[in-house]
């Protein structure tokens, strides 16, 4: 626990800075930490919040599983085939750097309003980092592993599950950590534009109404969820690296 004390103090300092900012610019612009927390707790008593959380969680679960499966499968394929990987990598890096919000009209036209376009947005954001991490992990894997698999006459499927995936697991976890954050961002952005439900819609609706307490409460909730999940994956990551 000694290790986390400085971080804990820093978080306290950040909350103090938030409070000072609140005092400087007034409650109309930024609610205080305490007000935000009480507002969040009172919102947690309503059915509305949980319905929205459920919608976001559902879209996120679909998007994350698609991004994970698609990213790992394509990453393995592109990693094993060197030429295909070399051809695809700059294209993928470029796709990663595009502000994907720009493409939202296209996504809306293809998938319509609702769940499917939210999921598509999430996958668009989250799949490429997972793919790139997986591909690079396979490329940097020690070649002796694959040669051993060849010597043991493993079928491609066997060598995938018994050699490739275990060997690149730490990098996959690192990729998933990044992909997780981006998928969540993608789903939220999708909800902001293409939905009538979910936390993103709640935030954008509150933006339209100028309802700062609700925005801050949703932001606090999302920050806590995101940071908690990220820290858990970071711990898993560290554990795998030390194997």
């Amino acid at each position: 626990m000694q290790r986390f004390l400085p971080t804990f103090l820093l978080v306290i300092a950040l909350i103090a800075a938030w409070q000072l900012l609140h005092l400087a610019i007034g409650a109309g612009a930024l609610t205080s930490p305490w007000m935000t927390l009480t507002h969040l707790i009172s919102m947690m008593g309503t059915v509305e919040l949980w319905a929205n959380v459920g919608e976001t969680a559902k879209a996120f679960a679909y998007a994350m599983s698609l991004a994970l499966v698609g990213g790992i499968v394509l990453g393995v394929l592109l990693g094993v085939n060197r030429l295909a990987g070399a051809v695809a990598e700059p294209i993928l890096l470029n796709l990663y750097a595009i502000p994907k919000v720009t493409l939202y009209p296209l996504v809306l036209l293809c998938f319509g309003l609702g769940l499917s376009s939210k999921v598509a947005f999430g996958v668009m954001h989250g799949m490429i980092p997972i793919l790139l991490f997986t591909m690079n992990a396979i490329r940097q894997m020690r070649p002796v592993y694959l040669r051993t698999a060849g010597t043991l006459r493993l079928t491609p499927v066997q060598s995938l599950f018994h050699v490739l995936l275990p060997a690149i697991l730490p990098e996959i976890v690192a990729g998933v950590r990044l992909g997780f954050a981006l998928t969540l961002l993608g789903v939220l952005i999708g909800e902001m534009f293409a939905s009538q439900r979910g936390l993103g819609y709640m935030a954008v609706n509150a933006m339209g109404l100028g309802d700062i307490p609700t925005i801050m409460a949703v932001a606090l909730l999302l920050t806590v969820i995101a940071v908690t999940c990220n820290s858990l994956m970071l711990m898993l990551d560290k554990k795998l690296q030390h194997r």
């Binding site: 820093l10 981006l182 969540l184 939220l188 932001a219 999302l222």
Partner: peptide
């Protein structure tokens, strides 16, 4: 050492949520 865990989690936070606050400021 204190900051590093926060930096590692930074990009998990959807920053756009805070945009309305900036608009007010």
């Amino acid at each position: 050492a204190a900051l590093e865990p926060l930096l590692a989690s930074y990009y998990a936070v959807p920053t756009f949520i805070f945009y309305p606050v900036f608009i007010v400021v």
